[in-house]
Design a protein around this nucleic acid. Sequence first.
DNA 1: TCAACTCCCACCTTTGAACAGG
DNA 2: ACCTGTTCAAAGGTGGGAGTTG
Length: 877
Amino acid sequence: MLGVEMYPSLALGPQRLSDCYYREHEPAAHVPLYPTTCEMSARGLPPRLLQPPPATAETPGAPQDNVKMELENASLWKQFSTVGTEMIVTKKGRRMFPQLRVKLSGLNPSLRYILLLDIVPVDSSRYRFQDNSWQVVGGAEARLPDRVFIHPDSPATGDHWQNRTISFHRAKLTNNTLDAQGYIILHSLHRYQPRVHVIEARDVLMWGRAQHSFTFPETQFITVTAYQNSKITELKINSNPFAKGFRENGMNCKKQREARLKRKIPSNQDECLDIESCDPCDSTELLPQSVEIPNSALSIINSALPITDSGFHTEVPSLPDQTVSDQPLEFLTSEISSMESQQQTSSENNVNDTLMDGSGQMMGLSGYTSTFPTRQLSSAHASVPQSSSIYSMVSSTQNSDLQLPQSSMVSSQPSMSTYSSMPSSDFPNLNTSTTSPPGSSYPPISHSSSPHLLPSSSYHSLLPTDQSQDNLSPHTPTNPPFQSIPSSSCQSSGLTIDPGQNQVDDGGLHSSDEVTPAVQNPTQTAFPFPPVQSSNDPDPTSPPCQSLPQSVLPFQPVPQCNPNQIPTPSDPNTTPTAFPFPPAAQPTPSNPNPMGFPFPPVQQNHSHNLGTAIHPTTGYFSLPSTNVIHQGPMQSIPNTLQPTTAYQVPSFPASLPKHTNPGSLQNPAPTLTSHTSYPFSTPIPSGPHPLQSLTLPSSSSFHSVPAIPNTTQIQSTFSQSYPNPSFHHMPPQTANPCQITSQSFPPIQTASTSQLLSQFNPQVPQASTHPQCPSSSNAYPAVAPTEIGTFSQLSSTAPYLPDMVLHPSLLPSLDSSLSSSAPPPSLYNPFPPYPLRLCQDPRSSLHLPLRHIYRQPQHAHAHGQGSYFDLSGRAVF
DNA sequence: TCAACTCCCACCTTTGAACAGG
DNA sequence: ACCTGTTCAAAGGTGGGAGTTG
């Protein structure tokens, strides 16, 4: 686990650039390998972030551009997604099931990488299970502190990561906002998108290059305290080894339990469980979960399919965008560094373990709020035949280039263009491959068109390139556009792909036919998530995915996929039914089949804007914004059906950069750019929350740039804004993702970012503060509705603005560093360790220092589960 | 009244220590 | 002394049900 205690460097971390390199032999203990986010920002990293030096000898052979991630148990995820994945959240923390198991490729075997898992809201809506489907019932609650789960093996060499299945099964979810365990805190009845980030440890300081973020649309889920959909329960019982007792043959099944209660007869252990032994947690590799699923489960699935269709295909539609990725990971840097030092040896040694646990550490990224979830693209997974979905990564810089269309971009273009170019909407398109209905962020999936659909949702991660960094906002919330697009695309892709899907990963469940009736059935294809409502999307029809060059796609289209089978958004029949979720913001009566989609359509407004655009905290964290977008979808789109699931999320929110800095966007993809109507551009009456604004700037423009607002600003903002109750809880209105996003974005990019940058980097021209974004006063600027609408519903992130946390102690250093533009070394001067914020209420956290590193006692003693890193500083609660 | 949440239960898997044998 | 394999207890993970809360 990472923790200040264990990894002093995390907290203190004065790190020198030289330190960034491997230090396998170096004692982790005292060596602050990684500078904290703050530190980085303080150092004036911004410049670097903005323009990371071209890969040099230092990073020879860095495969960054080629980094790909496959979701190993994609078929299982798809099965769940078709029904509408639900994840239990408890006070004590609950593991995820299915677990996230991925395989990485394209890493430099000799370089060290850190893997992170974070979960970001897909939209700003609250859901309720009604009429056998998930429907939006209101605005999302204030976003909780972002926490990141660091894979316990981190840092480890590329060879290490690539030679085994990486499992994050140890990551736990909790709804306890005061959680001191460092678990990932989520709100119940909200929809979330997990994201996996791959960060080159040595490049911690140079974020741009090494960061890769991946999202798998099929892994979207709704958090619950008790299962709402019986089909999900059945699937879980049948596929989760820990729930064997509840299987029909199990001793704890209903029948048995009832019998015992009535008869008071002890359960008969003699009964043999027919259930196949599944390796629950980690075993994914050995025993694909899907495989494990008993026939009964399959039957269930099939039966559900109708529903399922409704269910998760949504993946694609709903998540299209990977809004998720937007959040900056910068915060990680420090931690990572520390981790590397300590763990390198251990991790490296673990060759034997094919599976890598995600047990690792959970880090709370306060700053890193992922912005709002982008919609997933990945619907593909459902459709995708293969379980594993591969997403190609896009360089963060590239991400900005959501413009996928250009293959070149994908690989690793440094060009910033990406960012600007990528309208959230675009993404969605990409994802969906299918065209999205006009206006709806969530383009209907036209699978027919979608032959391109990627089988599994694969997303290209964006490599944070120099340029990208500039563009990217660390916080970048997911781009709404993406969401919509991806989802649709995903769905479509997924649908189309499905045939193959089974083939891929888990054989078990895969049975393509059985498992994915929905898939086959166009109607079923139903996307779990309703098409984006955002009308803005200029080209509903144009699938973003298409724009993406196929070359980009990691996987070639699966021949198996039958485009026809896949319902496309365009398909009137399929589309409506397809989306399980009604639009959050605006319930869509139009949605013919709520049932069909497990998830209600995302609110359009959500806007990606918010998500992608701003993360107050993100400023610090360079995590790829969701906006970054799921390249995967894009890829998938172009390709008719690609098996790959992997979705790399662009590290940075493409949208933000664009919006914020039009100029910055050098290479906006034509398609993308044209697309989206980005709210960002529009001035926002009221600035986003100060915090947000602060973070945003960085995020939008930079990947991982730690856009750190100068201390004064921060302080002022915090003091002012936070105290303000308004921030604590966003009014429903504010909650509206659209509003939030739109507002937040503009301010971020323009004013806040510029300011921040300027502060950090004298060289950077300061942008006049955005009038719209008053730092302190405006908690939430009004959002331009129209713009918002353009974005996918999912994007709505407003409520979830990431917190920026500036540790008080840090502030001074930052200021000094900034003002003086002191060289990195000075910047790295250790700052006083921050108090760990274990149980702090998120709200209270507002005032808290940047980083809170949590340690997981349990894990530490018990299974060594990872620690959770929490940067809680959220601007809004 | 109802939805959502919390707590507890029984069952199960996983993990690691303890032990024995080579 | 070291390694390997087996056994066992403890810890932890499940969903379900009952009760609580708002």
